[in-house]
Amino acid sequence: MDPSIPASISTTEVRPYIERHIALFSTLQQLSPRYFNQSTNFTVPETILTAPAHFVAEDANDIFGIMVAARFSQPPSDFDDELEYVYKITSSKPIHNDEIARLLGYNLDSTGNKSESQTLDDLGVTWLHRQAWPHAYPQYNPEEPVRDSIEIAPDLFYTAAAEQTPSTMEMSCRMGKNVAERLCDSKWLGELIP
């Protein structure tokens, strides 16, 4: 190992990762406005992003996003009212069938008009796939200052120091900007540019 590189750089830090769950399902139906506490004439957007409430029960399932991942028409029909939608849900825990039913305006648990033996097939869900992502992205630690961790040795910069946050192009651009600011502030850049 090069003695000019601090020993702390050679230490591999294992970060805790966040688990996320994905549910994909297809149906001819659009999402129900009732699920979002809206009137029946409300048009539900094709992409919905949410933020968890500050005080949620530990066993609560936070839904972070619901979106139309694809839409297609089944031959021979090419009419809009025959479009099949593929929805993608990202959540903190697996999405259960009753949650998907509520998204479509039904209640599988109901003992009123609906039979308890109803399935998602009965409600028009033609395909369903669930997947767990145990290491979706590193857990964010707000106590760790990101700007201070980009210069890991004298004149050695690590532009991916924001990997503790979910990977996005925006974060990479911000880290590049932070490195550029550090370079502009350093004597080293002054030596390079007369």
Results as ranks from 00 to 15, higher is better:
residue 131 Q to H: 08
residue 24 L to V: 04
residue 50 T to V: 04
residue 79 F to S: 09
residue 9 I to A: 01
residue 87 Y to I: 05
residue 3 P to S: 15
residue 167 S to V: 08
residue 186 S to C: 11
residue 91 S to P: 03
residue 90 T to H: 05
residue 72 F to A: 06
residue 77 S to I: 13
residue 7 A to H: 04
residue 191 E to S: 13
residue 68 V to K: 04
residue 139 Q to L: 15
residue 121 D to H: 13
residue 152 I to P: 00
residue 19 E to A: 15
residue 51 A to Y: 10
residue 1 M to Q: 06
residue 94 P to N: 04
residue 113 N to P: 00
residue 131 Q to E: 11
residue 39 S to R: 07
residue 49 L to T: 04
residue 84 E to Y: 04
residue 53 A to E: 14
residue 149 S to G: 06
residue 172 S to N: 03
residue 85 Y to M: 01
residue 72 F to K: 00
residue 80 D to N: 11
residue 55 F to P: 00
residue 81 D to Q: 08
residue 64 F to Q: 04
residue 98 D to W: 10
residue 167 S to Q: 06
residue 181 E to A: 12
residue 163 E to C: 07
residue 176 G to D: 00
residue 2 D to K: 00
residue 194 P to Q: 12
residue 161 A to G: 11
residue 112 G to A: 14
residue 154 P to I: 06
residue 158 Y to P: 03
residue 67 M to S: 11
residue 169 M to I: 04
residue 79 F to Q: 06
residue 60 A to D: 15
residue 99 E to N: 05
residue 32 S to F: 14
residue 59 D to K: 08
residue 58 E to T: 14
residue 75 P to C: 05
residue 71 R to V: 08
residue 184 C to V: 06
residue 132 A to E: 09
residue 173 C to K: 03
residue 76 P to V: 15
residue 41 N to C: 03
residue 7 A to T: 02
residue 173 C to T: 00
residue 12 T to V: 08
residue 163 E to F: 13
